[in-house]
Structure formats: structure tokens, C-alpha cells
């Protein structure tokens, strides 16, 4: 089986690699690039633990071939905010106790980034539906909803400040 050369931007850094056709993007990120913040929880694109941003959209990296990401711009949890700082969602998940074991958290946050991009002021129902492809077994979701609400407010304030 022929290898394929891929080049993509991950968290602002250009990466070029030779990969097998079947290499799943989540394994490329975790095993080849040693960025282990993106997790694997179900293999069937139900749980969302592997959610990343691909060209700005939330995508389940367990159901995406690395070769197809050639030329893409990818953001993982490691690249969401500069080292030592928090994205408003990271801060909100901390403030609102939106995480317990932390396993679903990177995927949940990456999904929420996309959610708030498309809907900066979501209702509770819209948040619940918006994160419905991401399972959390620990929190019961109440505080995740509150986290997304807090982040939405903070991001709106930030936006206002920059206008």
C-alpha cells in the first residue's frame, strides 16, 4: 500500500508526514504528533471525545482519514489558547465545574467553540442539542451548559471590547 504525503497546519505549525491510507486522523494526532489531548472513546463517532477543529469546524477525528486532511488547518485542545492562558471556554469549564474526569473535556470544548461561532448567544436547549454528539458520563451536563453560557457571555464582552 502506497504511502501518502500530507501537509497540514496543526495549532499554527505546518506538519508534513508520510502516512498510510487508513491512518485515522485521531491516531495521527495522538501517535505521530504526540498530542494526546484528543481522546478516543467509542470508535463509532458517537461520543465526540476525539473532536477537533478542522478548517474551523468541529469534526470527529476518529472518523476522518488523515490523508483527507491534507491541506487542512487543524486546531486541537492543545492549540486553543496560547500556553499558560485560557480560552474563555477553558476558563468557564474551570469556573463552572464543567469537568470531572476530564476525558470528554477536550472534545466537549472543541465542539463548543464551533457551537458558539455559529450561535454566539445560544439558549440552554440550543446548547444541549449543540453538544449532543459529545457524551459526558461524569457531569450530568448541568455544569457544562453553564460553562458554555459563561463563555458565550465572556466572548460577547470580548467582541464588544474589540469593536
Amino acid at each position: 500500500m502506497a504511502k501518502h504525503e500530507v501537509t497540514m497546519t496543526i495549532n499554527g505549525q505546518s506538519v508534513t508526514a508520510e502516512v498510510d491510507s487508513r491512518l485515522l486522523l485521531v491516531h495521527f494526532i495522538r501517535e505521530n504528533l504526540d498530542m494526546t489531548g484528543t481522546h478516543i472513546g467509542c470508535d463509532t463517532s458517537n461520543c465526540g471525545a476525539c473532536t477537533i477543529l478542522l478548517d474551523g469546524k468541529s469534526v470527529k477525528a476518529c472518523t476522518y482519514l488523515t490523508v483527507r486532511a491534507d491541506g487542512a488547518e487543524i486546531t486541537t485542545i492543545e492549540g486553543l489558547a496560547p500556553e499558560g492562558t485560557n480560552h474563555p471556554l477553558q476558563q468557564a469549564f474551570h469556573d463552572q465545574h464543567g469537568l470531572h474526569c476530564g476525558f470528554c473535556t477536550p472534545g466537549m470544548i472543541m465542539r463548543s467553540v464551533d457551537l458558539l461561532k455559529n450561535n454566539p448567544n445560544p439558549t440552554e436547549e440550543e446548547i444541549r442539542w449543540g453538544i449532543s454528539g459529545n457524551l459526558c458520563r461524569c457531569t450530568g451536563y448541568n455544569n457544562i451548559v453553564k460553562s458554555v453560557q459563561q463563555a458565550a457571555k465572556e466572548m460577547a464582552k470580548e467582541k464588544e471590547a474589540t469593536v
Binding site: S45, G48, T51, K57, R111, L115, G133
Partner: peptide
């Protein structure tokens, strides 16, 4: 569409 899979799957 609202009832199909989930938003991340619908992105793709």
C-alpha cells in the same frame, strides 16, 4: 437536519 446525527457529523 436537526434530527440527523449530531452537529460534528453534520459538519462532514
Amino acid at each position: 437536519i436537526w434530527l440527523t446525527a449530531d452537529p460534528s457529523v453534520r459538519n462532514v
